[in-house]
Design a protein around this nucleic acid. Structure first.
Lengths: 341, 341
DNA sequence: TGCATTTCTGCAATCGATTACAACCCTCAC
DNA sequence: GTGAGGGTTGTAATCGATTGCAGAAATGCA
């Protein structure tokens, strides 16, 4: 005994009205007489009616979904951001379509597929390094849905974005180390082309120069924000003849990898070197030593991104492109200590 | 100068054929003559045509999306599983709709919304603790899409699932500690009602009893798999008059929280207590000390779940309900050592 | 050449809801 | 009593693609 899903005509028949009335009673209740509305609602409940979203979306010319482009889903840095995004989207009854852009880097057309209005009503990109071709296609195609960047952004900055003040964060990190008396400060950078790497490097170097410190090129290592790249940097650091007494790692993951690898070689943080991270991921305050780092409000950032996007989806003419910049904060914990010259 | 998105009729006109032919040339190329096909493809390329998914889905009675129910998106444990799922779904050209079920616990109807065929073609639940009402509704409603569980499962086990052998994992953990000479072993459990808690507790206790060890009720603490609940357990452990010399924590996060909190009180692992975790999250091998734990193949698990679901979506009659059980492995690292009586 | 297949294509119905428009019923004021 | 105007409701077009069916064209075979 299997029943077909009830359709709007079934509800209409049951309530003794037309489908138009059912539709209105359900989505614009105030336009329908109370008695009719009650009858419709009762019929809907009785039959277990649920609107068919494909049909609604086709008619309304929308999809009810927002695509989230994530550089690497396996990276826990993104999980709280996604959580914030989901919270924001749920309010507007939008779904979150999560797409990992790693494969997409190889096959740009995979991403292009998502940047189309029939797939999603909007896009939140957590990945600033999307192929140029993809984005320009998006810009020129009048039919592509609004896109905004969160955390990262594009170098050209032609798209709206929500992010933290990365330069200031980096300055805070350097200030903290300099205030502790460190004079030779090294750095583990993110990927060369990454906008975050650029902003954090700029901020760090500006602060150092304000304080008459210089960044020795031999003390700056390239990483990719991952734990293991931090560990690799540690090995380079170990090989140095003159080691910096403090390190600014541009992500917590790299900081943890760095500290961990040093520990394997018998060196301890902060005794042998002070380390500052960036992000304040969940494990940072529970690591041993607890990591001094620059806090990013990740959930709030995701939420803000969702809200900004919703505004654009609802009012497509709002073309103001001001990035929304959230504040960062240095959290001093146990991975840094005063330099004892 | 803004162009409307081309529709199938535009392509048809351009290629000088009917919409039916365009549709076939695009989705069943072998049924169309080669010359016609070429003309259609050329017209499609020229006009920048992309199929409207709402229309296709309406007609085909599908949605192209799979809903993933995640207990807590902020928890990095899930990120690699999601990554595996995404990989599996992408092959079948299915989207991943991620839903956080935290709010849903308060508002069950929110979840019910997702369990409907017009929303998704299938469901992967990473949350075994969904309200009973929700699931029974799903079972009885012939129109709800296939659902499978990954990692967790339902106590009744009436739904297919993909998971690891949790009992065996727990036995491995206890064996490892017992082999190291520990005779009093404590435990930090997950939430009371959770199936994982049940299986891991059962396995651990079975192994202990096989070895003539007993679990003192005072040595078993309740947690919720989170870092902070591990830290709370550590404080209870500290208050104990007779402390177990080894602890089995039912999640890595709890193990890390436990070790971290002890460190704050000046105790060190494994010198003062040996600790085994469960999951092998990314940070485990980089924690200080590196965490001994039971490895779960999380990406593979997500991938397997996606593939199993795809099979069910494509052949709805396949009602075999055998859970697929993946293997676990104990990874001995530095958080455990021999008991020195 | 003539008839039977096979291959290819087009017509038109269909998926299920939304909504512009028109029609209707009331009430109320003059 | 009549017309204006507000409130409700129904009719039917529409969103854009897919596909069953039947007809047309091409091919095979005797």
């Amino acid at each position: 005994m299997s029943y077909k899903t009830p359709r709007i005509t079934d509800v209409a028949r049951l309530a003794g009205v037309s489908t138009a009335t059912v539709s209105r009673a359900l989505s614009k209740p105030e336009t329908v007489a109370e008695s009719t509305r009650d009858a419709v609602l009762a019929a809907a409940r009785e039959s277990g009616y649920r609107v068919n979203l494909s049909a609604r979306n086709l008619r309304r010319q929308r999809t009810g979904g927002i695509v989230i482009l994530v550089p690497d889903l396996g990276n826990p840095f993104f999980s709280r951001i996604l959580s914030g995004i989901e919270e924001g989207l749920a309010k507007a009854d939008l779904n979150m379509l999560v797409v990992d852009t790693r494969q997409a880097r190889i096959k740009p057309h995979m991403v292009t597929n998502y940047l189309h209005a029939s797939r999603a009503d909007g896009i939140i990109a957590l990945d600033g390094s999307l192929p140029d071709g993809v984005l320009s296609a998006t810009l020129s195609d009048s039919d592509s849905p609004p896109i905004i960047f969160a955390c990262e952004w594009t170098p050209s900055d032609r798209f709206p974005s929500v992010r933290v003040d990365n330069e200031r964060g980096a300055r805070l990190a350097i200030s903290h180390l300099a205030d502790l008396g460190h004079r030779t400060i090294g750095m583990v950078r993110g990927p060369q082309a990454n906008v975050l790497t650029g902003a954090r490097s700029t901020g760090a170097e500006a602060e150092m120069s304000d304080r008459n410190l210089i960044l020795d090129a031999a003390h700056a290592f390239d990483g990719d924000f991952s734990i293991e790249s931090g560990a690799r940097a540690a090995n380079l650091w170990l090989a140095l003849a003159h080691r910096p007494t403090a390190m600014f790692c541009q992500s917590d993951q790299m900081a943890l990898g760095f500290i961990s690898e040093l520990a394997r070689h018998g060196l301890s943080t902060p005794k042998d070197v002070s380390v500052v991270g960036f992000d304040d991921i969940d494990i940072a305050r529970r690591f041993i030593p607890a990591l001094t780092t620059v806090h990013q409000p990740r959930t709030a950032l995701g939420l803000a991104a969702a809200e900004m996007l919703i505004r654009r989806v609802e009012a497509r003419d709002d073309q103001s492109c001001e990035p929304s910049i959230l504040d960062v904060e240095l959290i001093a914990r146990d991975s840094t200590r005063a330099f004892e010259g």
